[in-house]
Computed example of a mutant assay.
Amino acid sequence: MSQSTESTTETNPFTKPGFIIAAALVIALIAATAVIFLLPKGDSNAQPAPAAAGSSSAPAASPGTSATTASNKSVCGLASSSEKTLGTAPKSKWELVGKIATPTDPKTFGPRRTDENGFRSCFAQSPTGALYAAMNVAALGSSGSSVLERQLAEKLLVPGAGRDAAMKQAAADSGSSGSSTPIQVRGFLIKSYTPEEANIDLAFQTEKGAYARLTLSMRWMGGDWKVKPADDGTTFTGTTQISDLSGFILWSGV
């Protein structure tokens, strides 16, 4: 997939019907500097950063208790939390998934499970768990592994038309669709959170310095966080170019 830097009037690929991302295609396009400048410009009325915005060295949210019913507790036994938001960045350990640094805390926030293919799942029912789960989706999708992309579509998307579309696309893809241009997460914003639903903004930066933001809508289902895709299979929404990280809590593993 290629795009000319002169084709600034070309249709935004993120809005094309049937533009499916088992997460990988969006990551690949964000990573292409020529493409990122074709994205819609960010909203000038971006939400302000929380007053206590911190860095990756800030304390993590402490796990607590919640009113989670026994039938919907974590499928792998991770503790839930009564926290409703994150005012600072969690103190995270990072590991590479594909080319993206991804947070990991298997005993507290997840992923609790990693299979022989490197597929990661099971995150805590907490704001930090939802954030880790969202970042996990982005990283798995950018891995370039068709096996991981199929697992992602099958296991980490909310069932429905969108999941069916993503699974169909993942089955049709062959070869690596991962990003050849390194990108890394630089910040996040939890737009809303309840123990059942979360909307999370992630900010990414390409190796050439361009920024983009995107939103993942998460749902707690079957004891883990899953992504709610659009009917065409698109898992990320609101993808826009941004000029800087204003409004985001800084958070990065690289």
Results as ranks from 00 to 15, higher is better:
residue 3 Q to S: 15
residue 4 S to E: 12
residue 5 T to I: 07
residue 5 T to G: 05
residue 5 T to K: 00
residue 6 E to G: 03
residue 8 T to K: 06
residue 9 T to W: 03
residue 10 E to N: 03
residue 10 E to Q: 11
residue 13 P to K: 01
residue 14 F to W: 06
residue 14 F to C: 09
residue 18 G to V: 01
residue 21 I to H: 03
residue 21 I to P: 02
residue 22 A to S: 10
residue 23 A to S: 03
residue 23 A to Y: 00
residue 24 A to Q: 10
residue 24 A to V: 00
residue 30 I to G: 07
residue 31 A to Q: 06
residue 33 T to H: 05
residue 35 V to L: 14
residue 39 L to N: 06
residue 41 K to D: 10
residue 45 N to V: 00
residue 47 Q to W: 09
residue 50 P to C: 05
residue 50 P to D: 05
residue 51 A to K: 04
residue 57 S to V: 09
residue 58 A to S: 15
residue 61 A to P: 14
residue 67 A to V: 14
residue 69 T to V: 05
residue 69 T to D: 07
residue 72 N to C: 10
residue 73 K to E: 12
residue 73 K to P: 06
residue 75 V to N: 14
residue 75 V to P: 07
residue 76 C to W: 01
residue 83 E to Y: 12
residue 84 K to H: 08
residue 84 K to Y: 08
residue 85 T to Q: 07
residue 85 T to N: 07
residue 87 G to I: 00
residue 90 P to H: 02
residue 92 S to R: 02
residue 92 S to D: 06
residue 93 K to M: 10
residue 93 K to Q: 14
residue 97 V to P: 00
residue 101 A to G: 13
residue 101 A to F: 12
residue 102 T to W: 04
residue 102 T to G: 00
residue 106 P to K: 06
residue 112 R to D: 07
residue 117 N to T: 13
residue 121 S to Q: 12
residue 121 S to R: 11
residue 123 F to R: 03
residue 123 F to G: 05
residue 123 F to L: 05
residue 128 T to I: 13
residue 128 T to V: 14
residue 130 A to M: 02
residue 133 A to W: 04
residue 136 N to Y: 11
residue 138 A to W: 01
residue 139 A to V: 07
residue 141 G to R: 05
residue 147 V to Y: 04
residue 148 L to R: 11
residue 148 L to I: 15
residue 149 E to W: 11
residue 153 A to W: 03
residue 155 K to I: 08
residue 156 L to F: 02
residue 156 L to I: 06
residue 158 V to W: 05
residue 159 P to G: 08
residue 159 P to Q: 08
residue 160 G to P: 03
residue 160 G to V: 01
residue 162 G to E: 01
residue 163 R to V: 15
residue 164 D to M: 14
residue 166 A to H: 09
residue 168 K to W: 04
residue 168 K to G: 15
residue 179 S to L: 02
residue 179 S to V: 04
residue 179 S to A: 14
residue 182 P to R: 13
residue 184 Q to H: 11
residue 185 V to M: 10
residue 185 V to H: 01
residue 185 V to I: 13
residue 186 R to W: 08
residue 187 G to I: 07
residue 190 I to Q: 11
residue 199 N to R: 01
residue 200 I to F: 02
residue 205 Q to C: 02
residue 205 Q to S: 10
residue 206 T to F: 15
residue 207 E to T: 14
residue 210 A to Y: 10
residue 214 L to D: 04
residue 214 L to S: 12
residue 218 M to G: 04
residue 219 R to L: 14
residue 219 R to P: 01
residue 228 K to Y: 08
residue 231 D to L: 07
residue 231 D to C: 06
residue 240 T to D: 13
residue 240 T to V: 15
residue 241 Q to V: 02
residue 242 I to S: 09
residue 243 S to P: 02
residue 248 F to G: 01
residue 249 I to Y: 02
residue 249 I to G: 09
residue 250 L to F: 02
residue 251 W to C: 07
